[in-house]
Design a protein around this nucleic acid. Structure first.
Length: 289
DNA sequence: ACACCAACGTAAAGTTCGAA
DNA sequence: TTCGAACTTTACGTTGGTGT
């Protein structure tokens, strides 16, 4: 009989040591095998741990809608006592205690710019993937005052909102950002750390891990009309969770990132989303922005 | 232990834009 | 005109979860 207390202790210890908010069942099973606490199955990796998960014996266990199991890091407390709690109840970490392992300086730069353009009255919350990792080049960002050739998201949003107006100049970035702010739009990122330098698999894992916190933030920000997810993978990973949390997602299909030939599609989908009938407050005014 | 199915991960292809 | 960068889409093999 596996020692559930020792297993829970080891999983929480590894999550804390690695600065992770959650871990998938297969990785967790590998940890336990390495620690000599639960021998993993070679043919069916993760199987022994999944049996414990199905029995509801793992602290912080969670099963996604796609049936995949995860173990979340939980707040400090006696593991043995908490392991006996009812199974399959998500135990998310509250935002103030979440581990943020990467240097704050870059993040603070993004956050400062973002806050400069936070609208007084938030109508539509735009969600992007993450701030871009500039590599060795200058930092880039949706809310950065300089317009670079890589400002695809800014160009897409500006085009969608104001591109139909004669004489609209997308190059006046600061003025356009102020107008976006005045019109009640604000952009946040699903992942607060850049993920564009990661492999597609790592990127997906990173975004998926950020979804619970993204949902919390969207609920807290409570945009009047709802959110628009500005990339296909974001819609695929977050739309269901957002709707489950009673956050209105203003489009029913994924919207492509506004890059190159996909910008026209983004603009069309974005404009359609703004006409979406879904509302958080059915009594809200019918007037458009 | 096995079969089945859905979801995932990865590589390759496709598209556009800007620079040379 | 060509090439490379940046990114999405697609196809297909692999993997994970479940029921028996």
């Amino acid at each position: 009989m596996p020692d559930a207390s020792a297993i829970n202790g080891e999983l929480q210890r590894r999550l804390k040591a690695d600065g992770l908010a959650s871990v998938d069942a297969v990785t967790a099973a590998r940890w336990l095998d390495q620690a000599g606490l639960l021998h993993d199955s070679v043919q069916r990796p993760g199987k022994p741990l999944r049996d414990l998960l199905r029995a509801g014996r793992i602290l912080g266990q969670r099963q996604e809608s796609n049936r995949w199991w995860f173990v979340d890091r939980v707040q400090a407390g006696p593991p043995a006592a908490r392991a006996a709690q009812p199974p399959a109840v998500p135990t998310p970490i509250s935002p103030p205690t979440r581990v943020r392992p990467v240097a704050e300086s870059g993040e603070a730069w993004y956050e400062k710019l973002r806050l400069e353009y936070r609208p007084e009255r938030l109508k539509v919350l735009l969600v992007a993937e993450s701030p871009p990792d500039p590599g060795n080049g200058p930092r880039r960002f949706f809310y950065a005052p300089d317009l670079s050739q890589h400002d695809n998201l800014y160009r897409g949003v500006a085009e969608a909102l104001y591109g139909a107006e004669p004489g609209f100049n997308v190059d006046s970035k600061v003025q356009v950002l102020r107008r976006i702010q005045a019109d009640g739009f604000w952009l946040i990122d699903a992942s607060e750390q850049p993920v564009n330098h990661l492999s597609s698999a790592e990127k997906t894992r990173s975004i998926r891990a950020s979804i619970p916190r993204l949902v919390d933030r969207c609920v807290a920000l409570a945009p009047e009309r709802g959110v628009i997810l500005c990339k296909r993978v974001l819609f695929d990973l977050a739309a269901t969770a957002l709707r489950a949390a009673k956050v209105a997602v203003l489009h029913d299909t994924s919207i492509p990132f506004p890059l190159g030939n996909h910008r026209a599609q983004f603009v069309a989908d974005f404009r359609r989303a703004l006409k979406h009938p879904q509302r958080l407050d059915p009594s809200a005014s019918e007037s458009r922005l």
